[in-house]
Every structure is written in C-alpha cells, then in structure tokens.
C-alpha cells in the first residue's frame, strides 16, 4: 500500500517506440513471406490393383482368375487423343460414346450413362478402369475424371476405385 502511495502522483509512461520497432519487423516479415495460395481442389481416388486389358465378353463369372474377376467388376472407359494430345473420342466398353471436342453435352451424356450403370440395383460394378492414349493431356483427362468421380454406387457410397492404364496401340 505504501508502495502505491509513493507513485500515485507520478506520471508513468511506457516507451512505445521499441515495441513499435519490433512490431514493424514482424509486419515486414509477414508481408514479405505472404503468398496468396490459389483455390485448389483435388479428386481423391483409391487406386485399384492393375488389371490387364482383356475382352470382357470372353470372360465368365465362373472364371477362377482373380484378375479376370476384378476386370468383370470394372467399367472400361477408353479415352482417345488426337495428335495434339487433346481428347478426341470416348468409348464406353469399346462402344463409341462420342467423338470430337469435349463439350458440356458430352459431359452430361457420359454422366447419364455412368449413372445408369452404377445406380442400377444389384449392379456388379464398383470400379472404373480408364484406358487412355499415352499422349492425352492431363487437362483433358481430368475433365473425364471429374465426371467419373461424381458417380455413386448402388449402395449410395461414392465411387472411389478408379484405375488407370495405357491403351495398347496396335
């Protein structure tokens, strides 16, 4: 109490200049290291084991080959590229789905076809195998991956098993 009384009439002032110097240094550090990060998204996949390119119609569910069985449970989507590496055609189970440049109508068509396959009750399919030309650009491949990753299985779970393989060119 005596202590407080001794200073009660004094004028105590903090020296702000030193603190301000430090604060400015911190500010300079944060400004210099600041890099606005872009809004980036990802498409999560669970990579299934590799499946050999086979002719599905020649296989039967009674086959003992585990690889062949996996193959039977996968939908095959083939992506063809033009000489510039752009997407030129998409085949669903070796049947041409569309040709030409990628358009929103093509995306809708692919989406509807896949939805029909995967959301059919008792559908045996639970994965997609994307077979692509070697030269296809990542940007064009991702347009197809975007549609594929929207699909849900018959049990309501999202389709995550998406396999990739290179197309054998003869």
């Amino acid at each position: 109490m005596r202590h407080r009384n001794r200073f009660s009439h004094g004028n105590v002032e903090l020296n702000m200049a030193a603190m301000l110097d430090m604060a400015f240094q911190l500010l300079a550090f944060f400004i210099l290291t600041f890099t606005p990060s872009p809004i980036e998204g990802q498409f999560a996949l669970k990579l299934p084991p590799p499946v050999a390119q086979t002719q599905p119609e020649t296989l039967t569910p009674a086959s003992n080959d585990a690889e062949a069985m996996l193959d039977l449970q996968a939908i095959h989507l083939t992506l063809l590229a033009n000489p510039e590496g752009r997407l030129s055609a998409v085949l669903l189970e070796d049947q041409p789905l569309f040709e030409g440049d990628w358009t929103p109508q093509h995306a809708t068509l692919l989406n509807n076809q896949l939805k029909e396959i995967f959301q059919t009750p008792d559908s045996p399919f639970h994965q997609i195998q994307i077979i692509s030309d070697k030269t296809l650009h990542y940007g064009d491949m991702m347009k197809v991956v975007e549609v594929v990753s929207r699909q849900k299985l018959a049990n309501g779970k999202p389709l995550r098993e998406i396999g990739f393989s290179e197309r054998n060119t003869r």
């Binding site: 980036e40 998204g41 990802q42 498409f43 999560a44 996949l45 669970k46 990579l47 084991p49 590799p50 992506l79 590229a81 590496g85 692509s132 030309d133 070697k134 030269t135 296809l136 650009h137 990542y138 491949m141 991702m142 991956v145 990739f164 393989s165 290179e166």
Partner: peptide, 23 residues
C-alpha cells in the same frame, strides 16, 4: 501427357500408397 501421370500412379500403387489425389 498421360503416360507420365500413369507412371507416377503405378509407382505409388506398387509402393503401397493407394490413396491418390489429382489436383
């Protein structure tokens, strides 16, 4: 090109990293 992407995905899977994300 896809061949390069596929090479990385194959390596990832072979080494047990099955959870993959494409940005």
């Amino acid at each position: 090109p896809f061949s390069r992407i596929n090479e990385l995905m194959t390596l990832s899977r072979e080494h047990g990293f099955e959870n993959f994300a494409l940005s």
